[in-house]
Amino acid sequence: MESPSIQLVASSLLSISVIFGVLLVATFLLRRLRGTAWGRRAVGQSPIHIAAVRGLGGHNTLVIAEVEGHRFLLGVSRGGISAIGRIDGHE
């Protein structure tokens, strides 16, 4: 005859094992779907394109983004994103 504490431990270990197994299966399926149409992002359909990225050190970055044929220079930092200006001469 098993004591209630042994049954509780066995039940808890079984529950944790089932949850861990479900997480492993979900991870496997998500990795398999990454290369399919379900896992792909519609990059070609987006009106926004990142043309260039330049790190400035720390957590600061300059980004050139193209939107509907216009280029914009953006500053990205921990504090957020700032539009520095529009880059002329690109159509």
Results as ranks from 00 to 15, higher is better:
R31M: 09
I6P: 00
W38D: 10
R34C: 05
H70Q: 15
G21R: 01
V53M: 12
R41C: 05
H59E: 14
R78M: 09
V63T: 09
A37S: 14
A51H: 09
H70C: 05
A26R: 11
S82G: 03
T61K: 04
H70P: 00
G58S: 11
A26G: 05
Q45Y: 06
G79E: 13
G35S: 15
E91M: 11
L24W: 06
L23F: 14
L73S: 05
I81V: 15
I64D: 01
S77W: 05
Q7V: 04
R40Q: 15
I84P: 05
R54S: 10
R34F: 14
R54P: 00
G85M: 07
P47I: 00
I19E: 14
L13W: 00
I50A: 02
E2Q: 07
I84D: 04
R54C: 03
E2Y: 04
L73K: 04
S15R: 08
I19H: 06
A10N: 13
G79H: 05
T61Q: 11
I19A: 13
W38K: 10
S3H: 10
G35W: 04
I48H: 09
G39D: 11
S3F: 04
A65L: 12
I19G: 02
A51M: 04
S12K: 09
R32Y: 12
V9C: 01
V76N: 00
L14D: 07
G80I: 02
A42I: 02
L73C: 07
S3D: 14
L13M: 12
S15K: 10
G35M: 04
G75R: 03
L29C: 07
R40A: 14
F28Q: 12
D88W: 08
A83L: 15
L73A: 11
L8F: 05
I50G: 00
I64Q: 01
P47R: 03
L30T: 07
E66R: 06
E91C: 08
H59T: 13
G89F: 12
E66A: 06
A52M: 06
S17M: 05
A52H: 13
V43T: 10
R54K: 15
R40L: 15
E68R: 12
G55T: 06
Q45C: 05
R34A: 15
T61I: 10
H49G: 01
F20A: 13
A52F: 06
S11K: 05
G39Q: 07
